[in-house]
Amino acid sequence: MLLSIFQYSFLIRAFEAGVVIALIAPLIGIFLVLRRYSLIADTLAHVSLAGVALGLLLNINPLFTAFGVSTVASVLIERLRLSKRVYSDAALSVFLSGSLAVALTLLSIAHGFSVNLFNYLFGSIVTVSQTDLYIISGIGCVVLVGVYVAYKELLYVSFDEEAAQVAGIPTRFINVLLIMLAGLTVSISIPIVGALLIAALIVIPVLTALQFKKSFKKTILIAEALSVFSVVAGIFSSFYLNLSAGGTIVLILVAFFVASLLKRA
């Protein structure tokens, strides 16, 4: 029985893509959560949907349009936030619903609602093509390298933005870089967990790991372990129990989070 799961090439692709996403999501997530940027993940996910719709309309691989649109949006979000003309949470809310509206309009221009949209909203492991896997792995590497290169700057800015600025770290650039990396992470996560559930993969493992009260490096490692385990277990159970992979992954993450809270109580 266990062997049979690996006879399906779509499932192997799902596992491979899933592990890439599981590895990078908490890596971006820890900086977003500590900077109080958690909601940006959700906003960028909705923005990516607009990108997906654009891709479907123009007949381009939606992953490409998703990260194109989310990259542009991440720069705009940061600029709007810095301009202080609106509250930053309100700015996010504008982008969140605005881009959903764009997505809906583009899709209705294309050919009304289709099954496709459902896959992008909630994820579908059967839809991960070989090309998708290449894109996901490639972008995943870009995010990994990005975090590796800017690790100490990201850490310093998250810890004490003002002191980081005095130390000569280009804080504005680091902020934009973080949001752009988040945009990339979100767009490639769409096929597996779906746009509506990505934020959970980015935020929840980090929140759980924070409850352990360890050093920064150990906190990242705990979040990584939780994330990879949940994604792999989620895909397994979706195959054997015929459940939504995105839904199961997030439920496992939530279970760990609740357990970590109870443990401390």
Partner: peptide, 20 residues
């Protein structure tokens, strides 16, 4: 809630002397 040890914090002080 910030997860950092004393040592991790103090090492940040060295970042200004190191580039990207």
């Amino acid at each position: 809630l910030f997860p950092a040890t004393v040592e991790e914090v103090v090492r940040m002080g060295r970042y200004a002397r190191r580039g990207f």
